[in-house]
Computed example of a mutant assay.
Amino acid sequence: MISDRKLEHLILCTSCDVEYRKSTGFEEIEMVHRAIPEINREKIDIGLDFLGKELSSPIMISAITGGHPAALKINRELARAAEELGIALGLGSQRAGVEHPEVEETYAIARKEAPSAMLVGNIGSSHIEYAERAVEMIDADALAVHLNPLQESIQPGGDVDSTGALESISSIVKSMDVPVMVKETGAGISSEDAIKLEACGVAAIDVAGAGGTSWAAVETYRADDRYLGELFWDWGIPTAASTVEVAESVNVPVIASGGIRSGLDAAKAIALGATMAGIALPVLEAAGQGYRAVIRVIERFNEALKTAMYLAGAETLDDLRNSQVIIMGRTREWLNERGFETIKYARR
């Protein structure tokens, strides 16, 4: 049953080693230090307009959970924090809530606790018929369509027929009264796929790159035969590389997520072209302690982001996106081999 699987996922993500063994690539991104920033740190502005919603910070709580009674407390605490801070919150896949009304409250609690926050709904690309109900369930400000071919490939009984996915996404975009974005679930998005998604009319793309939680790893623990899961544990496009690939290829906002573990990581992602940075595991762990703990995590991210901006001489997020960064190591090799010119980031 879907609800049971949701609980298994929650337990595995909080109690087992399910992270990529390879890195996000952000340790290979260096921001150029400005010894004379010529700005006042206290006047740094990290607010932004995202898909028509005014947000206090580009740090977004990425989709985590829903669909099991145990998820209600987590989404309640995340929503309370999002409401108080004025940030965006993504909900987990809402298929369970649509198919099983008895667990709908595990999602609906978010809007009850966060009446004015930006909430992002979540459905799979093959579930066109769930889109409208998913938005209604949480009075969503936007809808995310998630892509998870890696997880489905490893998951026992997973859906490995993605024929018509782009047509399905286009249909969802055309049928919705709210912006529709697309997000991967931990294996990244390439420039080629980003271009196809933009052609479908999506309003934003969340790269959800490799480097954070590996859903191949999560499903490895659930499988009787762990061979495939172990083999594909680290499959995907590292988050730093995926951020550049997508940001350079489309003209819609890009969310960098997948292993973002600090405000410095977020600053690097934005300097590479992202509009927002999504985090999940850091706040999942905090949610168990209550919304105040979640707020402390986000505030630490914001402070580190502002510090990085100050040291880079960036007073606004637009300034940060135009700041100088050095791309080194495997990330540079990846991007150069893929045809992206990395030296221009250092010579802005």
Rank of each mutant, 00 (worst) to 15 (best):
A71W: 08
L72T: 13
L72K: 15
L72C: 00
K73F: 11
K73P: 00
K73G: 00
K73T: 08
I74V: 15
I74S: 00
I74H: 04
N75M: 10
N75V: 12
N75W: 11
N75L: 12
E77Q: 14
E77G: 08
E77L: 07
L78W: 07
L78I: 10
A79N: 03
A79S: 11
A79T: 07
R80S: 13
R80C: 12
R80Y: 01
A81L: 09
A82D: 00
E83T: 09
E84L: 12
E84N: 11
L85H: 05
L85E: 02
G86Q: 07
G86D: 03
I87F: 02
A88R: 10
A88W: 04
A88G: 11
A88Q: 03
L89C: 05
G90K: 10
L91N: 04
Q94S: 11
R95N: 03
A96H: 05
G97Q: 10
G97K: 09
G97E: 07
V98K: 05
H100A: 11
H100C: 04
P101Q: 09
P101T: 10
P101W: 11
P101G: 07
V103E: 06
V103G: 02
V103A: 07
E104W: 00
E105S: 12
E105F: 05
T106W: 05
T106E: 04
T106A: 04
T106P: 01
T106H: 04
T106D: 02
T106I: 08
Y107S: 05
Y107N: 03
A108G: 02
A108H: 02
I109P: 02
I109S: 04
A110E: 04
A110Y: 03
R111I: 11
R111E: 03
K112E: 15
E113C: 13
E113M: 15
S116M: 05
S116E: 14
S116W: 01
S116V: 06
A117D: 02
M118I: 12
L119Y: 06
L119S: 06
V120W: 01
G121A: 15
G124Q: 08
S125D: 06
S125E: 10
S126L: 13
H127Q: 15
H127R: 15
H127E: 15
H127G: 01
I128L: 14
E129Q: 13
E129T: 11
Y130N: 13
Y130T: 05
Y130R: 14
Y130F: 15
Y130A: 07
A131Y: 07
A131N: 07
E132S: 14
E132F: 03
E132L: 09
E132V: 13
R133D: 12
R133C: 05
A134G: 06
A134W: 09
V135H: 02
V135G: 03
V135N: 02
E136G: 13
E136L: 11
E136N: 14
M137P: 02
M137D: 05
M137A: 12
M137R: 12
I138N: 01
I138Q: 03
I138F: 03
D139S: 15
D139I: 09
A140Q: 08
A140G: 07
D141R: 13
D141N: 15
A142C: 09
L143S: 08
L143E: 08
A144G: 08
A144S: 13
V145H: 07
V145W: 09
H146T: 14
H146C: 12
L147Q: 10
N148D: 03
P149I: 14
P149T: 14
P149R: 13
Q151E: 14
S153K: 10
S153D: 01
I154Y: 06
I154F: 08
Q155P: 07
Q155D: 06
